[in-house]
Design a protein around this nucleic acid. Sequence first.
DNA 1: GGCTTCG
DNA 2: CGAAGCCAACGCAAG
DNA 3: CTTGCG
Length: 917
Amino acid sequence: MVSGMLGEYDKKRDFRRTPEPAPTAPAAGAGPLLFVVQKHAARRLHYDLRLELDGALKSWAIPGGPSLDPQVKRLAVMVEDHPLDYASFEGNIPAGEYGAGQVIVWDRGDYSPDEEGKLSFGDRDEASERLRRGLAAGKLSFTLRGHKLKGSWTLVKMKRGQNDWLLIKHRDEQADTAKNILDKDRSVVSGLTIDNLKAGKKASAPTSTAPGLDNVASARRTAFPARLAPMLASSAERPFSDPDWLFEPKLDGYRTIAAISDGRVRLLSRNGLDVTEKYAVIVESLRRQPAASLVLDGEIIALDEKGKLCFQCLQGYLESMGRRDNQGPAAAAIIYYVFDILYLDGYDLSGVPLTGRKEVLDRVLSTTPAMRFLEHFEGEGEVIYHAAIDQGLEGVLAKRKGSVYKPGQRSPDWLKIKSVKTDDFVIGGYTPGTGNRSHSFGALVLGYYNDKDRLIPAGNVGSGFDDRLLTDLKSRLDAIKTERSPFEAKVDLNTPVTWVRPELVAEVKFSERTRDGRLRAPVFLRLREDKTPDQVRVSLGDTKAPSGRTKEAGPADDPPPRRAKDAVEDVLVQLRRPEDNLTIEVEGNRINLTNLEKVLWPGGGKQPARTKRDLLLYLAGVAPYLLKHLRDRPLTLSRYPDGIDGEHFWQKHWGHPVPEFVATAPLSEHGRKTHDYLLCNNLATLLWLGQVADLELHTWFSRVIPGPDRDIPGDLTEPAEILDFLTSYPDFIIFDIDPYIYSGTESRGAEPGLNKKGFTATCEVALWLKEILDGLSLSAFVKTSGRTGLHIFVPILRHFDFHAVHAATRTICQFVLQRHPASVTTEWAVEKRTGKVFLDYNQNVRGKTLASILSPRPSPEATVSMPLPWEGLMKVYPTNFTVASVPAILADSGDPWAGILDAKRDLKALLDSGRKK
DNA sequence: GGCTTCG
DNA sequence: CGAAGCCAACGCAAG
DNA sequence: CTTGCG
Ligand SMILES: [Mn+2]
Ligand SMILES: [Mn+2]
């Protein structure tokens, strides 16, 4: 099998004296090509990178070892081919042998050439051929799938030196400027270090049992997840049968995520609180799991002496931690019922369909009495549901078999179906009790948060308490008593209420909700110690409900405001670290940030300079307001990598693979070939745009998704056709108002600069326009452009395409022009606009853009396009609103444009009347 | 700023 | 490795 | 048709 090219190696090596390669050598000639990196303490410590090709291992010795930093280039000296089975060699090479010293398998996995972003993992012959071509050309690009090394790398042959190559990490998700991967110094096969070998330790059995995860479709090799959050279920009213769904009994306990990493076991509550200390037995079971790193999801429950599920027993168990005075029913057993696996030995399984994850879990889990696999059922949902109720369970969880795990998200792919309706509410106060309750309280006043973070009253609950609970609750409530009502609106009660700070959450059972959102026949069940008040919301839904089974569909894809704010806070903290380069984590995505101290707005005079860090802080700060305006709108980037005085270019298409968190949409102009447009639908993308020095955000006025005001006609089937169609229907009429009133300080031929007179005139025109729009029953929203003028957006139902909207806008502008011919112009020739305010309706065309709301601008002051209330328009000035000032202003007064898409009007009347004239 | 290509 | 180049492109108004 | 415009 080994021929000519290996001759050199054979000469140098005497196989009789060196240990045989371990018997775990991979099956040659099947599956993806193999790579291995051996750490080799020879005369000089180095790492040997070996790539399988044609039955042998192409090899490079890398003195510096690989680096995850794309800026770091490491010398890689090509050495002789090694035989394929050397890939699993680990141990001592005796003194006197070639390469004497210790060798560990520092990393291994598979690889594929990846030129042009095309991978050949599935085709050995193709992969081999591509590698041969790369070798001949002196340039290799390949993707590694190992334990330590992942992502795309390149080996380039240097001009000088026959065998001198450079190993460079490509920029991708796995690139990391901060982490030194060489810190991980253990063998991925034996767990041993070079030092262990020196000390005479023998490699024993492999420690990982990752059961062929390479074969589980959609399992991804990733770093251990930094954040662990359970996926949440939506509610459904009734059980159902569907072959695409499976059913689990719903256990009444504490939702818990178990994590094993770096030899440490952790148990995390639904809120991420570390509860490891509370469950010693379960921790012990976890320690015995045959995995080096692992994340499980499940429910911790308690059984009473009769073997029945007993939530009270669990509470008693937790309360009596460290004490022996527990009074409630005793827990006979504490059990962790595991129903999901999210991560295993380097593989992120969250993208694997549910049934796949269950299969892996079943194989991997070593069950113990304290840790069990939660069985699931298929078939008649109704039968399973009633069986569960008969067992005294709360109900069932229906889970879509093909669904992926979405950490921290409430998904319509998981539905809880309960026998009694219960919900969680924030306790906002209590009413006085009478009779034997006069010393405690009568009822708890309940509420929940709406999407504006306001506490909305939801009625009272006055039953379900026993004496102990009454006194207990009373003292806890009195400790958080407050003068002011925590509720948004007046609470309509005919008894006085003692208000409390909204800090406690109650689970309440009820028969139904009344029309006004109150509860009928409410019964207090328990305090939710594991839930914080801000999690109590109308709807946490974060995806559309495709099946229509969910009780309440979420608003859209947006995470709920509170979570969004947490994510932002998280980012702000990371951004403030004083390093010039940072890798930050944003909602589970890694973003490499560079040159944070680079000045993008130089300032000058009294103007402070603004850096890239300032830009990113701004973007994160306004993200909770900005993202909804950007969502699903194609973007045009306006980039200034070297600041506003440096080179500038527009960019519509990224032209390279985008980070996985960036959404794109293929659009075409009138049916010609499509181009991928970027969409900014999440915080990570927004920050990435900052990283690539996209100073301005220019968005389309149409979106790539349908909605209540815009269906897709049945005869459109091609995705490209559909997107082109959808993007032809604008959400707004827009007016771009620019003063052509010169300050006199402009250089010759330049556009007019910002000046008081011009801006005042612009505001005046805007107000005239508003008057007319009001008369047409249209709603108008105004913002500064951030430069010299104003933008007026008029939200409309998506019933008319750009052509119709354009025509209507022209009519409106002509009307304004007629009334104020001395100050307004719609002239297309620039010279003819001089001294007047240019009212531009010509942007109402598909594919045209304007600097979006809250877009930073390349002005000396680092201004942004600021949404404003109409009142007091004349009193503001564009330079009041900068990347430095706006986050605080928004936090203070909110976004006047927040409701713009809810203020849509029908343009029909206007168009009809226009047609008549 | 990221990436490719060329030397 | 270092230097240099690329990174939008359409449709409407008006002459 | 070309050119200017954003
Ligand atoms: Mn070596
Ligand atoms: Mn403008």
